[in-house]
Design a protein around this nucleic acid. Structure first.
Ligand SMILES: [Mn+2]
Ligand SMILES: [Mn+2]
Ligand SMILES: [Mn+2]
Ligand SMILES: [Mn+2]
Lengths: 143, 143
DNA sequence: ACAAAAGTGTAGCCATGGCTTCATTTTCGC
DNA sequence: GCGAAAATGAAGCCATGGCTACACTTTTGT
């Protein structure tokens, strides 16, 4: 029979596939959350503001918003701002909550606040529902 | 003076920039670790094996190895396997250690082993040295 | 030894996510 | 109200990381 793996080479495909799939969602999640932040705190989400906060040029932000629209997460009218659909709002809500839990957990295990803020921006997209639930339980227990 | 941010809109640019930069390293890190795993456990790292374990087609693996060679992490001769340079070996070592610490930390805070394995594959690439040190301290303390 | 199977290389396609450049439109200040 | 400044849109470039298709080489089995 084919040599099955003994050590590190176990079911690697599913692991990498899942990571790649999460990665393809990351940009959508960050833009959605950013747009929602702007709508809440500034009242509108203009392309220029989105671009400035994301640290990209405005054509890059325009492309990202196009993708959001294509995926049914946002709407926009030329020279008016960008808005979120119901689905977009739901995603923003979920993403914001998860982001906060990730930062809190990092801080709870001893990560300095500054590093926690920076690292959470990348980590959050790979935290599954199962892991998120475990983080919440850990935080609740140690409260 | 320009309205500084009150809430979620703080230094977002650095956060997102750092996350993007980490992302561009992720693929390199995973292939390097995988090649090292194969060299250790199988004795050679052929393109086909790399591809199969990464869950991609062989031309995709070939492209990735090309990038590794370009970045000075690997070498290869046609129809012979792929090898790691000193720099590649060092990266593999570092990445493997970090991967293990991330899995261990997830399990330590209550994440089920299965989910920890899956999520760590993505999370690891966004764990900074500072955060890694905090994870290690946490694990050492609770040992 | 040689045919078949397996592995490898190469070319070329697509989507994503960056960018610059330039035209157009809107907004703002006076 | 109008001219300048700012914002937006649109086109097109590049690198990355997937893929398929096909040709060529190497290994394997009989
Ligand atoms: Mn993020
Ligand atoms: Mn976030
Ligand atoms: Mn990984
Ligand atoms: Mn890994």
């Amino acid at each position: 029979m084919a040599a099955e793996d003994d050590t590190a080479l176990g079911d690697t495909v599913e692991r990498f596939s899942q990571a790649r799939s999460a990665q393809s969602q990351a940009l959508l999640e960050d833009y959605t959350e950013m747009i929602d932040d702007l709508l809440r705190e500034v009242g509108e989400a203009r392309i220029t503001d989105i671009a400035r906060h994301m640290g990209v040029t405005h054509p890059t932000a325009t492309k990202a918003v196009s993708r959001l629209k294509r995926e049914g997460l946002a709407q926009s009218r030329p020279y008016r701002g960008v808005f979120l659909t119901e689905a977009g709002l739901a995603m923003a809500e979920r993403v914001r909550a998860r982001h906060r839990v990730v930062v809190d957990l990092l801080v709870a295990v001893g990560v300095p606040a500054e590093a926690a803020e920076l690292d959470a921006e990348g980590i959050e997209h790979y935290v599954s529902d199962t892991t998120l639930a475990a983080f919440e339980a850990f935080l609740a227990a140690r409260r």
